[in-house]
Simulated scan of single mutants.
Amino acid sequence: FSFHSSKRSRMAEKIDQQAINEQARSDEESCRMESKELRRKKRIKCIVLFIIVQIIQTLILSLTVMRVRTPKVRLGTVTFPNLVTGTQFIPYFDLTMMAQIKVKNRNFGPYKFESTNATFTFQGVTVGHVLIPEGKAGFLSTEKVSVTLNMSSNALMPRFSRSLGSELGAGVLTLNSQAKLSGKVTLMLVIKKKRSAQMNCTLAINLSAKTIQDLNCR
């Protein structure tokens, strides 16, 4: 009886040990499964975060770097090496003007523009024009082009004599200037967008001081 009892006891211990081992293996397998699930969830989170970052970067690029703005062209410094005018009763003018034309590029890429003419008028009648040569304004920079032109009242018809005489009598001659630049903005070295820049300036010339009294561009 003692022999059989001992044998049954050893068998019970063996069964208990097997159960413990199986439980341990089950727990280990469960831990491995949980670890795999955690890694999978972590990978998904990383992928989602990467996609969100890419979307944000794309939006920032489209709203800033990739956004194409129209360049601005304006008159800058103006001087008069020669300025001759008549009187209120014998109105005429003949002048030489040296001007700086500024092409302001507000893009994250260069703006290459074609040559064009800048026209100067008195009450809508052309009194002079000058060639603006082709050039390039670098990204986020201003290109300054120096030009020299002669202007005179020879093209004005007699009906302008009174208004011209009035301005000469007041000592201030008002002229307008217009120009249109056509060109392309290059982004990321490959993307090219056409843009045209307009210049429309009004300049009031102080005849006694031979300087610009007022300059308004839009």
Rank of each mutant, 00 (worst) to 15 (best):
C201W: 05
S152I: 01
R106P: 06
S182D: 15
P158T: 06
S152L: 02
F113T: 02
D214Y: 11
R32L: 07
S2G: 07
L181Y: 02
M151V: 06
K41Y: 04
C217I: 10
D94H: 15
N176W: 02
L156A: 05
V172R: 09
G86I: 06
E13L: 09
E134N: 14
V65N: 01
E114H: 07
N82A: 07
K42P: 03
M97W: 07
K7E: 08
D94K: 10
Q198F: 15
R39C: 04
S146M: 13
M157F: 07
S177P: 03
E29C: 11
K144E: 09
E114S: 14
V172L: 12
K72P: 02
L83F: 10
Q18C: 14
K184W: 03
K184P: 00
L156C: 10
Y111S: 01
P71K: 03
Y111N: 00
G86V: 13
K102M: 08
T174S: 14
N21L: 12
S9W: 15
I90R: 13
S166D: 15
V145R: 00
R74N: 13
K144S: 14
L59S: 06
T77Q: 12
T186A: 02
N117R: 13
K136I: 10
S153E: 08
L207T: 07
I205C: 11
G128T: 07
L61V: 01
L181N: 02
K180P: 00
A204N: 12
E22R: 10
A99L: 08
Q54W: 05
A155E: 15
V147Q: 04
V78E: 08
K42D: 11
L181E: 00
L131E: 01
T119P: 00
G128N: 01
Q213K: 15
L156I: 12
D16L: 12
V73N: 03
I90F: 08
T85E: 02
T119N: 06
S9Q: 12
K41H: 07
L63Q: 07
A197W: 00
V147Y: 07
V130H: 01
M199W: 04
V185T: 03
M66Q: 11
F139G: 00
I132F: 12
L140D: 05
Q198E: 14
K144Q: 09
V103L: 03
C217G: 07
L75V: 06
F120E: 01
G171P: 09
K102L: 15
D94C: 07
V127Q: 00
R39S: 14
C217N: 03
A137V: 05
R159H: 13
V65Q: 03
A209G: 09
L215I: 11
V147N: 08
S196F: 11
E167V: 09
C217F: 04
Q17L: 12
